[in-house]
Design a protein around this nucleic acid. Structure first.
Length: 940
RNA sequence: GCAGGGGUAGCCAAGCCAGGUCAACGGCGACAGACUCAAGAUCUGUUCCUGUAGAGGUUCGGGGGUUCAAAUCCCUUCCCCUGCACCA
């Protein structure tokens, strides 16, 4: 072994091989205390990037720490194969998507294998293998690989079906209408930012327009869709585009006139729609009238060329006092209509829309940019600070922010309006067709709105260990807000068949809520002790709920395992899970599992982003592949980077230079330790005790930090503070072989959870067992040496002060004189600190006290000067400082022993004096400045 | 709209909950020195301003307040980011 050459790749491979051959990762029931940790399993969507490794790494660090603490650790993993991602990937392969094929080839995948990847289940098994072999094992994770599972395996599906029987039994499965994105050609599509299914419109939202029925004289309905139903009181006219041909249709037994596009949309949203094959030109409607519901006012229909047949119904109601678009249109139409004000709002007069148009100097309907700004301004002000005025009947005096739903509900209840759903922007399917919103009249939901379930979950979360605290505070609110979730869908998705409706599949969020429990079973499946097809409801009832009897001894074994390992102690996942996965994880456990099997903790970590805080994505240039990065930097360096570069609870920017620096730091630790063997064996009691003491402090601080899962603080102590201490020891001339060896032995253990490969390598210089299996160091009060800690503190202060003086004066020192403060000052300091502890510190009291000693009389002037400044100084001290002053350490003796060191670093003669000595040489008249732990200094 | 997070020195990023150890961890960058034929790597030191004695001054988005003391607590204001459901 080359002691100075840190060949991380060789080291990693060597120890991974040994760990995995020995299967040290397998969880065993040995110590009667257990710890179950897992990460939210990744979806199978393709190659992962360095961002994903952050959370996985945290998990491994915690798991390794816990096992070194003597816990039986269960740290399993699996893949979330349900849903679209793997289908999406297979589709890309099938249509020979260029970047996808390039990625695969770059990774070294053969054409033969690529061909197979047009099959989604092949995608799952291919990437499952990549995740395990190329990511998790390469990072040295001690995941229990005997439990790997996927959500599309036979056994898992049985498990999910059992879960749904449970939900049904508890009345948590309900049916009601639902509206979902839908392509007339391709069926259901997902609208999300990754745009797997669609070409355009990933950030579209579904808006709910209140579509108000305005009746014409012949009873025909003109539907106007609005997001502000409360403005109905201010409607003065309708806008219809004269250049658009409208159609007639019978909807719920009434005859409607609307744009062709709107009719198509409504066909998918309402059951009872019959087109009447009658076209009406917009022109023909202009000049007619209709009636505003609720207020029963007759209003004219005016020409509005801006009314877009693609937006909502294509027919627009006009509220000129409160909508800038309507105001400008009205002005331009030159119609003799007066705006009707219905909202009183601070900062505006009788016509907010007009006023804001004037402010933005809007003259024409074509100035859409300004109009949008104007609309937003009016809307915001009115929504937050506006009240309906006397024109609004029974609603007069009510705040806008409180009224919206009331008006909407009245209209709907009186059959004067319906709700129409519409995307906030155009959404285009992969096939090129327009994505619409379709009603599913009897969709199945998991009833997360259930009051009992919600309140029980909230109560339960109160006693969980949730990191960070902010999320713990936020979670009850999320549980309240969390609404019923449509839990099945139809289409080409991977997942479990829904047991109560043929042809429908359980969607991916709903099939990954109780899943940590399945890790208990997956081991038995993988070892062929039980078959997926043999898992029935009876089995799950027995294992999870203790109902019924065991069919055979395997059932008993599985139940024993479940009772030993469950519940989950930490479920760790990224911040994207805060409002989706974690709430359902918790609520399903509360719904189905007894109290003692419900999760104990959740750990949320933030993301790794690209430069400029952008989410990592391949389309934006992406970042390094995991396997490339692992080779470039070494996985220990990456583990250290994740653990130390920032708090787990903020996004961090991927910074390859920073990772390189961490790699160099590991190399320097490696080198430094290799070097120590060559030291002479010298003893220096003070220094040796100091190093022992500092090591104990590191142990203590790292444990305290780990216990709070504060990985960054623990890492900082172990890799930065600890190294600093060792450097100081060496710089000071410390060279005790036994002390150094003990130090390195302990330090190696401390490093193990974070950089296991490096630790294993260092450890094996003198040991044959795995350091990964060693016990974490225990803090020992006996190894604390406070006097030496204060002594070295004093020494570092003195050197700092001397350096500062030299820097400012630019003197080349011939000789440095150091004067320790006189005993009386030290006595007074101690007294003052004690008085301060009792809150009795005041100048008069101390003076009296001191002056009672006749010997002090001669020094009265100096004493009073010194004492007068004391209260201010002592107030600034923290607990550690105060302790330092109370420790009985002979400053003079300590520094005297360090003369060699001082004269070495300042390259000159050093004299140490005690101010208590008679006839001290004090040419600079500095003695008077000496205070405890802050000797006076004179430099020649 | 609903909910959440954040603004810290040239940059990234700790600290804030539990006010004083904070001119503010750590890293990057920059500067100087050591090593080297040289470069790189590594090591040492410096890096808000002023200063020929260990000091002083001004900083933690802006404004105000509480306190002996505030980056940290309270109020107010401006600006950024994230999630919101069939996407995992």
């Amino acid at each position: 072994m080359q002691p100075n050459n840190y060949d991380y790749i060789k080291i990693e491979q060597k120890w991974q091989k040994e760990w995995f051959e020995e299967k040290i990762y397998e969880s065993k029931k040995e110590n009667l205390k257990k710890f179950f940790i897992h990460f939210a399993y990744p979806g199978v969507s393709g190659y992962l990037h360095v961002g994903h490794m952050r959370g996985f790494t945290y998990c491994d660090i915690i798991a390794r720490y816990k096992r070194m603490l003597g816990y039986d650790v269960l740290y399993p993993a699996g893949f979330h194969a349900s849903g679209i991602p793997s289908i999406g990937f297979a589709k890309k392969v099938e249509r020979k998507d260029e970047t996808t094929l390039k990625d695969l080839k770059n990774y070294g995948v053969t054409n033969e294998v690529i061909k197979k990847l047009s099959d989604p289940s092949e995608v799952v098994s291919y990437f499952g293998n990549v995740y395990v072999e190329d990511y998790w094992k390469k990072f040295g994770f001690l995941i229990d690989y005997s439990r790997i599972m996927s959500t599309i395996s036979e056994g898992y599906k049985k498990f999910i079906q059992w879960q749904f029987y449970q939900l049904k039994e508890k009345n948590l499965l309900i049916q009601k209408p639902h509206f979902a994105p839908f392509c007339p050609n391709c069926g259901p599509v997902a609208v999300d930012k990754s745009e797997t299914d669609i070409l355009k419109g990933g950030s579209a939202e579904i808006l709910e327009f209140t579509t108000i029925k305005f009746k014409m004289k012949d009873g025909t309905i003109l539907p106007a869709a609005t997001l502000r139903p409360e403005t109905i009181f201010g409607v003065t006219n309708m806008w219809i585009n004269p250049n658009v041909d409208h159609v007639k249709a019978e909807i719920n037994g009434e005859v409607w006139i609307l744009s062709k596009e709107a009719l198509e949309k409504l066909t998918y949203q309402t059951k009872d729609v019959k087109p009447l094959n009658e076209t009406i030109s917009g022109k023909d409607l202009i000049g007619k009238t209709c009636v505003v519901p609720i207020v029963d006012r007759e209003i004219p229909i005016l020409s509005g060329p801006f009314a877009d047949p693609n937006v909502a119904t294509g027919i627009v109601m006009s509220v000129p006092a409160h909508a800038p678009y309507d105001w400008i249109a009205l002005v331009e139409s030159k119609a003799d209509i007066e705006a009707l004000t219905i909202i009183d709002v601070k900062g505006f007069g009788t016509n907010p829309a007009k006023e804001v148009c004037d402010k933005f100097e809007i003259k024409s309907q074509t100035e859409t940019e300004k109009l949008d700004l104007a609309t937003e301004e009016v809307y915001k002000k009115e929504f937050h600070t506006g009240y309906l005025n006397e024109n609004c009947g029974i609603y007069a005096g009510i705040k806008i922010s409180d009224i919206k739903d009331a008006v909407k509900n009245e209209l709907i209840d009186n059959n004067q309006a319906i709700v129409m759903r519409e995307f906030s922007e155009e959404v285009v399917c992969r096939c090129g067709g327009k994505v619409l919103i379709k009603q599913i009249p009897d969709q199945w939901f998991i009833k997360y709105s259930d009051e009992k379930l919600t309140s029980e979950s909230k109560d339960y979360s109160n006693n969980m260990n949730i990191f960070p605290q902010e999320y713990k505070d936020e979670l009850p609110g999320i549980l309240d807000w969390f609404d019923d979730r449509a839990c099945i869908r139809k289409g080409s998705w991977l997942g479990t068949d829904f047991p109560f409706k043929k042809g429908w599949i359980i969607e991916p969020i709903s099939d990954s809520t109780l899943y940590p429990a399945y890790y208990i079973i997956s081991k038995y499946i993988n070892e062929n002790k039980i078959k997926g097809k043999d898992l029935d409801n009876e089995f799950f009832d027995y294992v999870f709920l203790g109902k019924g009897k065991a069919k055979d001894s395997v059932w008993e074994d599985i139940k024993n395992d479940f009772d030993y390992w469950y519940p989950v102690d930490i479920n760790l996942g990224g911040k994207e899970h805060k409002t989706v996965h974690f709430p359902v994880f918790l609520m399903n456990h509360v719904a189905i599992m007894p109290n003692e099997k419900r999760p104990q903790g959740i750990f949320v970590h933030w993301w790794v982003t690209q430069k400029g805080k952008e989410k990592i994505s391949k389309s934006k240039g992406g970042v390094e592949h995991i396997n490339e990065a692992a080779t470039t930097y070494g996985v220990d360096a990456m583990r250290l980077y994740y653990a130390h570069v920032g708090s787990p609870f903020v996004d961090i920017e991927w910074d390859s230079e920073a990772v390189t620096k961490y790699k160099n730091r590991l190399a320097s630790i490696y080198k430094m330790i290799g070097h120590i063997n060559k030291f002479k064996d010298l003893k220096d009691e003070n220094l040796d005790n100091w190093l022992k003491s500092k090591l104990q402090r590191t142990i203590k601080k790292s444990i305290d930090a780990f216990e709070n899962f504060d990985l960054r603080v623990a890492t900082n102590e172990i890799f930065f503070e600890c190294q600093k201490n060792l450097q100081w020891y060496i710089k000071r001339g410390g060279s005790n072989k036994k002390i150094l060896n003990d130090f390195i032995k302990t330090w190696t253990k401390l490093m193990t959870p974070i950089t296991p490969h490096l630790s294993e390598e260092l450890w094996h210089r003198d040991n044959n067992e795995f350091v990964s299996n060693e016990k974490y160091p225990i803090f020992s009060e006996k190894e604390i040496f406070e006097k030496e800690e204060v002594g070295e503190y004093l020494l570092s202060k003195v050197t700092d002060d001397i350096s500062e003086i030299l820097k400012v004066t630019k003197i080349k020192p011939k000789k440095i004189c150091i004067y320790i403060s006189p005993a009386w000052k030290q006595d007074i300091y101690k007294k003052a600190i004690k008085l301060a502890e009792e809150n009795k510190l005041n100048v008069g009291q101390i003076m009296k006290d001191v002056m009672s000693d006749p010997k002090m009389k001669a020094l009265a002037k100096q004493v009073s000067q010194f004492v007068s400044k004391l209260p201010g100084e002592i107030m600034k001290l923290n607990e550690n400082d105060k302790k330092r002053y109370l420790i009985d350490m002979k400053e003079y003796n300590y520094l005297k022993k360090s003369i060699e060191y001082l004269s070495d670093i300042f390259s000159c003669e050093i004299d140490i004096y005690s101010s208590d000595d008679k006839n001290v040489n004090d040419p600079g008249n500095k003695i008077r400045f000496a205070i405890p732990l802050r000797p006076a200094i004179y430099i020649e």
